[in-house]
Simulated scan of single mutants.
Amino acid sequence: MLQWTVYIYVFAIIDGQPLYGNADDRDMCNVYQQETYCIELRQRMEEKDMKDRGSTEEDCGVLTHETDDLKQEPNAVRVRWVKDYIFVNSAVHWNMAKERCENMGGYLLEIDSKSEQDVVTQRSLGKFWWTGGRDYHGDDTWAWDSSKDSFLYDNWGGNQPDIGFEGCLVLTSAGDWHDYPCDSTFFFICEKNSTFS
């Protein structure tokens, strides 16, 4: 037990400096600040010859690189931040996007904060992407499909959402939100709180 406590302590404080000011800093601070902080952390660890203990950018709450090693979705890119995201470059209607995310053990993207919005927008590559946002009753009462939560954060574009039968939410190339008919075809972003396999 003592060894485990010491091990955690080593990663919690280096040279008397805490890795995180508080839980919000770890989870939801600006991604650019986190990436800069991870670089500084790596430098401090190298100075103390601690790099070989296996700590990486993941200890900062972000993973600053992308991979394309997903067997289920060969046309996809994985991005790790506080959550795991898969950007699937295959245009499908909303129900198919939902099904494919669920087949990988995840769900369509649910954006909970401006920080998360910034992370996914930065990697949106000028495309439109399905998210998990739904208006099931056509009355502009929007919620996330998987969690059933109402939006804590939103980034609607001008004159959005439209009144009508556009019940599925798209993240646009500019990063704002638009509602579209669910039978439209777009790329999609899957999300998972743990790592996709």
Results as ranks from 00 to 15, higher is better:
Leu2Asp: 04
Gln3Lys: 05
Trp4Glu: 04
Ile8Phe: 01
Tyr9Met: 00
Phe11Ala: 00
Ala12Gly: 03
Ala12Ile: 03
Ile14Ala: 00
Asp15Val: 00
Asp15Leu: 00
Gly16His: 03
Gly16Ala: 01
Pro18Thr: 08
Pro18Val: 09
Leu19Gln: 02
Leu19Tyr: 01
Leu19Ser: 03
Asn22Phe: 10
Asn22Gly: 07
Asn22Tyr: 09
Asn22Ser: 12
Asp24Pro: 02
Asp24Tyr: 11
Asp25Gln: 14
Val31Cys: 07
Val31Pro: 11
Tyr32Phe: 12
Tyr32Ala: 12
Cys38Lys: 04
Arg42Ala: 11
Met45Leu: 14
Asp52Trp: 04
Arg53Gln: 00
Thr56Asn: 10
Glu57Asn: 08
Glu58Asp: 10
His65Pro: 02
Glu66Cys: 08
Asp68Ser: 14
Asp68His: 14
Asp69Val: 12
Leu70His: 15
Lys71Ile: 11
Glu73Phe: 12
Pro74Val: 12
Pro74Leu: 09
Val77Glu: 13
Val77Ala: 04
Arg80Ser: 06
Val82Glu: 14
Asp84Cys: 11
Tyr85Arg: 04
Ile86Lys: 14
Phe87Lys: 02
Val88Gln: 03
Ala91Gly: 01
Asn95Leu: 11
Lys98Asn: 08
Lys98Leu: 04
Glu99Ile: 07
Glu99Met: 06
Arg100Asn: 10
Cys101Gly: 02
Asn103Val: 04
Met104Cys: 11
Leu109Ala: 06
Glu110His: 10
Ser115Phe: 02
Glu116Met: 15
Gln117Lys: 12
Val120Glu: 07
Gln122Thr: 12
Ser124Gly: 07
Lys127His: 08
Trp129Leu: 10
Trp129Ser: 10
Arg134Glu: 15
Arg134Met: 07
Asp135Arg: 03
Asp135Ile: 01
Tyr136Lys: 10
Asp140Pro: 00
Asp140Met: 11
Thr141Trp: 06
Trp142Val: 13
Lys148Phe: 04
Asp149Gly: 05
Asp149His: 12
Leu152Arg: 13
Leu152His: 09
Tyr153Pro: 07
Asn155Ala: 15
Gly157Tyr: 04
Gly157Lys: 01
Asn159Tyr: 13
Pro161Asp: 13
Asp162Tyr: 09
Ile163Asp: 08
Phe165Lys: 07
Leu169Lys: 02
Leu171Cys: 04
Leu171Ser: 05
Leu171Ile: 07
Ala174Gln: 10
His178Phe: 05
His178Arg: 12
Asp179Phe: 01
Tyr180Ala: 14
Phe186Asn: 05
Phe187Gly: 03
Glu191Gln: 15
Lys192Val: 05
Ser194Leu: 11
